[in-house]
């Protein structure tokens, strides 16, 4: 076992264990849309020291009052398995599905970017937006608001290109994800 710095200091208390490699996973969580459910899910992550990279939530079935939370989290395989079980045992949680492990899946994110500029920069921004298939949803003589949809990587790339062209503000939705094929995470029954 590799020695950690704590052990090198010869503490009388044990050293923290060495970490396995960390990877990113996307979880789809179906919950009852009731007060406090989001706080419960988030509190679980903070209380147990798990990392959230992105979290989106919205009601997906109004009559059954079900919401879908999509969480992108990072951790060792062991930690991700724990997150899965810890989420599953919450009373308002109906189903947890690890999309990264269980299937091939699609991830999309939407971002709105405000780009302020004149002349060449303005034209260049419009051209890049066209390449990325971003839509102009608002325009003044000095600014654009672009709407872009895609994977997190694509949105990141677009944002990086827009930075020198007068990017002033970004609003992102976080990741929404769904599995490919006919199998669903949850039958809306």
């Amino acid at each position: 076992m590799a020695r950690t710095s704590q052990q090198d200091r010869k503490s009388v208390y044990g050293a923290a264990p060495v970490q396995d490699p960390v990877s990113s996973h996307t979880l789809a969580v179906i919950v009852d849309n009731e007060p406090g459910v989001l706080a419960r899910v988030i509190g679980l992550f903070s209380g147990r020291g798990y990392n959230i990279e992105s979290l989106t939530v919205a009601e997906t079935d109004h009559t059954a009052r079900k919401s879908r939370i999509t969480i992108v989290c990072s951790g060792t395989v062991h930690v991700i398995e724990q997150i899965h079980h810890q989420l599953s045992r919450l009373v308002p949680v109906h189903k947890v599905s690890n999309l990264t492990l269980e299937s091939t899946h699609l991830e999309r994110e939407l971002a709105l970017l405000k780009v302020v500029g004149k002349k060449d920069k303005r034209i260049e921004a419009l051209r890049v937006a066209d390449i990325f298939r971003a839509r102009v949803v608002d325009s003044t003589l000095e600014s654009f608001v672009f709407e872009i949809t895609g994977t997190t990587e694509k949105v990141n790339a677009f944002i990086d290109l827009m930075r020198p062209l007068g990017l002033t503000e970004i609003s992102r939705t976080g990741v929404a994800a769904i599995s490919r094929g006919k199998e669903g995470v949850y039958e809306a029954a």
Binding site: M1, G14, P17, H78, E81, Q82, H85, Q86, S88, R89
Partner: peptide, 24 residues
């Protein structure tokens, strides 16, 4: 006690009603 020296040569069966306790 120290986890990496816990029952080092054993196979472990764990029965628990809480799935999150297993492999925690």
């Amino acid at each position: 006690g120290r986890l990496d020296a816990f029952a080092p040569n054993s196979k472990k069966i764990h029965i628990d009603i809480d799935p999150s306790s297993i492999n925690k």
